Measured scan of single mutants.
Amino acid sequence: SFNTVDEWLEAIKMGQYKESFANAGFTSFDVVSQMMMEDILRVGVTLAGHQKKILNSIQVMRAQMN
């Protein structure tokens, strides 16, 4: 498990989005775990492969939080 959203993004090789997530207010796992595709688009993730990777990881995160 990760301590910060930045660490999580690095771990899934999506570190290039750290600033975008932070600027959009997605700075805690409570918020990130609620993200939908529209949120991912809003933070500027436009590549389908990256969207899928982030969404898949969020689903895993949700499962671990319950």
Rank of each mutant, 00 (worst) to 15 (best):
F2N: 06
N3W: 11
N3D: 13
V5E: 00
V5L: 04
D6R: 05
E7D: 13
E7Q: 10
E7R: 06
E7P: 02
W8Q: 00
E10L: 05
A11K: 09
A11T: 13
I12L: 15
I12C: 05
I12K: 02
K13Q: 15
K13R: 10
M14P: 01
M14R: 01
M14T: 01
G15N: 06
Q16C: 08
Y17T: 01
Y17F: 04
Y17V: 01
K18M: 06
K18V: 07
K18C: 07
K18Y: 05
E19Q: 10
S20T: 08
S20G: 15
S20F: 07
F21A: 00
A22K: 14
A22M: 12
N23P: 02
N23M: 14
G25T: 02
G25L: 04
G25D: 04
F26T: 02
S28Y: 05
V32N: 00
S33N: 08
Q34W: 05
M35I: 05
M35E: 01
M36K: 15
M36H: 14
M36W: 07
E38Q: 10
E38L: 06
D39Y: 03
D39Q: 04
R42Q: 10
V43F: 02
V43E: 00
V43Q: 01
G44T: 02
G44D: 03
G44F: 02
G44I: 02
G44P: 06
G44H: 03
V45W: 02
A48H: 12
A48Y: 12
G49Q: 11
H50G: 02
H50E: 06
Q51A: 13
K52A: 14
K52S: 12
K52F: 10
K52E: 15
K53C: 10
I54A: 01
I54T: 00
I54E: 00
L55M: 14
L55N: 05
S57P: 00
S57T: 04
S57G: 08
I58D: 00
Q59I: 12
Q59N: 12
V60G: 10
V60C: 12
M61L: 15
M61S: 02
M61T: 03
R62I: 12
A63H: 13
A63F: 07
A63V: 09
Q64T: 11
Q64K: 05
M65G: 08
M65F: 07
N66F: 03
N66A: 14
